[in-house]
Design a protein around this nucleic acid. Sequence first.
DNA 1: AATCAACCCAACCGCTCCTTC
DNA 2: TGAAGGAGCGGTTGGGTTGAT
Length: 276
Amino acid sequence: MGRSPCCEKAHTNKGAWTKEEDDRLISYIRAHGEGCWRSLPKAAGLLRCGKSCRLRWINYLRPDLKRGNFTEEEDELIIKLHSLLGNKWSLIAGRLPGRTDNEIKNYWNTHIRRKLLNRGIDPATHRPLNEVAHASQNQEPGSSPATASASASAPTTISFASSAKTKQHQQQQETSTGSGEPSMVVRRSMSMGVERCPDLNLELTISPPRHHEPDETGERNICFGCSLGLQNSKDCSCGIGSTSSGDNINASSSSAAYDFLGLKPGVWDYTSLEMK
DNA sequence: AATCAACCCAACCGCTCCTTC
DNA sequence: TGAAGGAGCGGTTGGGTTGAT
């Protein structure tokens, strides 16, 4: 089909931004807000692509950006979030105030990857390197290592839980409906996740720990799918929404997944991963 | 002092997703 | 319902900086 370019490349500057360009962009956004990035450059008197302006603002000029080195706490948080979210840098950035997705992505590639490798952990799967090597040896012919590791790791599975760009739409949906129903976006994302990787057991790594043990009141806890209102989902593991729960991962294996991630049951509630 | 390699990070590119018409 | 446009995301690149030889 092809698309028209986002800007007229012949008349746009590229490369490093000058102080003057920065000042123009800052003063324009202060006066008018972010608005439409496509029309912003012209309105602001900048010979830049709208995308370039957006990136410059988001990654460098925004006043709420935190400057300086990452702290040890931020390091660990990034590692844990990456183990849950994969390369969803914008989602990870959403949990680190003042940090941008680009910044975190760069930091991951230059520091944390090495740090994990030094610890003997595969940065892609967050599993011990020797275990990853072993798994790739045992994989079925025809399946790629990436597929093999993805089937046991969260990065692929979590993608259905909240897509980066669904944040605002999700909020819009929820505020507009005002009901406890999951947003269309969430439902769509979930179904996509299942369709893309039908062999994935999505229950393995993303279910809140409290799902598996009945509480003292005898009240049944519900699975992640049901908590999202997907009572009839085939991924239901609590038995409320589906008739068969025996095929799903049991509590011990699920808690093992948490142990592997270094997450103490109850400490991490995935509902808290909702974007701010 | 010069050269080279490694590292860092801002910016670009191509793509997907969502909204609008 | 589908095409077009806009926004945003993730991967990659290229130039500047730093450290080693």
